[in-house]
């Protein structure tokens, strides 16, 4: 994190220092980032969360449980992931999570909201069986409203049939 800052800062100064003429030292290796992330007002980036949750090598950095079509069962392949979060939440009783259930775009929005709730509830149930307290979890549904993949094919739909685990600070 700090290293990245250290890297970015001189470049920013450099850019500010040379307005129009490209006379400064060439920086062939420095990536020039012209894409600006769109930040939604009110969004949070979970800076204060424990490192385990953000370390890509840690299973806890994985937050999505995918479901089959018309299915509301946490598949075996995701049980390890859910168990890891359960252990983490049991060890850290002060942590709170939001489980967001999602569906694909087909069908009624409100009915899909109810289907997404079934998925969120399924994840919640596994977590509570593993010892997480009800107060630590809120299971909600976003239905078809927030697709991860905006496509309209089987692939996109599969990616959107999902339960996401968000830690407080991230929502």
């Amino acid at each position: 994190m700090n290293m990245r800052f250290a890297f970015l800062l001189p470049m920013a100064l450099l850019l500010a220092g040379c307005p129009s003429t490209p006379s400064g030292p060439e920086q062939p290796d420095a990536p020039i980032e012209t894409r600006v992330p769109t930040v939604n007002a009110g969004s949070v980036d979970g800076r204060d969360l424990p490192n385990e949750l953000r370390d890509p090598k840690n299973l806890l950095s994985q937050r999505s449980v995918y479901f089959d079509y018309n299915s509301f069962e946490v598949k075996r392949e995701y049980q390890e992931l859910v168990s890891a979060h359960a252990r983490f939440l049991v060890a850290n009783r002060q942590l709170r999570i939001l489980v967001q259930g999602h569906t694909d775009e087909r069908g009624s929005r409100e009915y899909n909201l109810a289907l997404g709730q079934k998925r969120a509830d399924a994840v919640r149930r596994v977590l509570t069986v593993l010892g997480v307290q009800e107060e630590q979890i809120e299971a909600v549904s976003l239905g078809e409203e927030k697709p991860k993949n905006e496509g309209h094919d089987d692939l996109a739909w599969a990616e959107n049939r999902r339960g996401d685990i968000l830690y407080r600070g991230e929502y």
Partner: peptide
Amino acid sequence: VTKAQIDLISQLQS
């Protein structure tokens, strides 16, 4: 035990 419990949940669901 945990696996059994999770299995029970999915059995209940089916």
